[in-house]
Amino acid sequence: MNGNYLEDNTHKRRLTYLLLVVAPLAFIFVSLFLGRYPVSISDVIYILWCKISGTPCSLPEICQTIVWDIRLPRAILGAMVGGCLAVSGAAFQGIFRNPLVNSGILGVSSGAGFGAALAIILFNATAPTYIFAFAFGILAVVLSYLIAQVYNATPTIMLVLGGVIVSSVFSALISLTKYVADPMDQLPAIVFWLMGSLASARYQDISIAGIPMLIGISGLLAIRWRINVMSMGDKEAQSLGINPVINKGIVIACATLATAGAVCVSGIIGWVGLVMPHIGRMLVGNDNRILIPTSLSLGACFLILVDNLGRMLTGSEIPLGILTALVGAPFFVYLLKITKGGGW
């Protein structure tokens, strides 16, 4: 089970890529008929057909709304958020040469968390929350990068240190906003936001937050082979012919756009950005040419799966941030056992 996918067998490679595309689509489709309001598979297909072809639908309005306006955008958003977090995590692990790094290493999650909390206190409306979360997420990474540059270049260790510093500052600021928030409505809103949820998914959110997510993902997919080279360290990467500062900058920019776009609509969802890339490493090896697309696909499938569990397990929804670890951990241990750790 190590990555001989790329050169050895064109047929096998095509099949792998096909599977990576089909799997999230299948998860999205399945999540359309899962839920507390029963809709049969044939009804789901019928509704999809009507909506896509524009023909009038004879099923009750509520049925159409649930499938087309609630479950479908939610599943699509789940796929995008999960994919973004996982792919950014994989890219960061590569350029920081450290398998323990996740998508929030440069402070994007804590920055976004603070932005959201601040917006909840100031405005208590959805749109400013997205904007603040996104802007502060980006700001946090920019700050980490600037801190690292105090040292003239941007050595990896300084970047990580910058991220740790910025994260802890924003964590403190999150605590401060919680402390001053109105405990009746604002505080719960902050706490729920920080635990992550896809419940508010609507098409317009997807179309706006989707822009940075898609830009980030496309950038990382395009540059993915160079992540291999960057993981050799700055000195070797440079002697192999790539400018480490510019290339690292591009990866950080793309991963940050993707993560900030994801976090601003979903809240903070841990675990995905750390562990999905590892599951990818166990399944297809460490070559980023195949690892990056695999992480994308795995992250998407995993978050749809967890979100479905979250909305079906109990009467009220379980926040995503809680379930990702509770569902993911046993699965991770299981994979660790069957792949014998994937060569670590």
Binding site: G3, E7, R97, N98, P99, S231, G233, E236, N286, W344
Partner: peptide
């Protein structure tokens, strides 16, 4: 050479 990820030799 500081090894990080278990890449294949060919890679």
């Amino acid at each position: 050479h500081e090894k990080t990820f278990p890449y294949r030799v060919l890679d």
